[in-house]
């Protein structure tokens, strides 16, 4: 395996985690939206995809 190849799977999933985390923060920091459920779900989603991104990067390292 070419170790210099971009770990695209991990990068994509971490980008997803980032988007979800930003949206959760926007809902948390904007009282006018008043939707705490969105913070819980998008925030939990960010954690799920963060874990998956970490697992993908670890898998990639173990394959090198």
């Amino acid at each position: 395996m070419n170790s210099r190849r971009l770990p695209i799977e991990g990068v994509l999933v971490l980008a997803v985690a980032g988007v979800w985390a930003i949206l959760a923060a926007v809902y948390q920091l904007s009282p006018s939206l008043g939707m705490p459920g969105y913070v819980r779900v998008w925030g939990a989603g960010a954690v799920v995809f963060l874990v998956l991104g970490g697992l993908l990067l670890r898998r990639r390292r173990s394959g090198d």
Binding site: I8, L12, A15, V16, V19, W20, A24, G45
Partner: peptide, 13 residues
Amino acid sequence: KVVFASYLVFVPP
């Protein structure tokens, strides 16, 4: 892979 990930990117916004 980018297409599949894009589903997840577009969900919350």
